[in-house]
């Protein structure tokens, strides 16, 4: 599977995450529930085959899926 492909929403969630937003902040910004935000994060972690949010961020930075 091509690890580089995120959905638009998944990318948005991680772009906000690396800018020091909490899941609560992100749910308010995107007008979705906190649970939905956490689901997006979990989906990405699973897609990338990594353990944890930090590892997911590293992979996404390496693939240029998100940028600082």
């Amino acid at each position: 599977m091509n690890k580089g492909i995120l959905t638009k929403r998944e990318r948005e969630v991680f772009e906000y995450l690396i800018k020091n937003n909490t899941t609560k902040d992100i749910s308010n910004i995107l007008n979705i529930s906190e649970k939905t935000v956490r689901n997006h994060i979990s989906n990405v972690i699973q897609k990338l085959g990594v353990k944890g949010r930090s590892a997911a961020v590293i992979e996404l930075l390496k693939l240029n899926e998100i940028s600082l």
């Binding site: 995450l17 690396i18 020091n20 949010r53 930090s54 961020v57 930075l61 390496k62 600082l68």
Partner: peptide
């Protein structure tokens, strides 16, 4: 020569 030394998603800088 990129190096990744991140253990948290907070305050990430390059």
């Amino acid at each position: 020569n990129k190096e990744y030394d991140i253990d948290s998603i907070k305050n990430i800088q390059n």
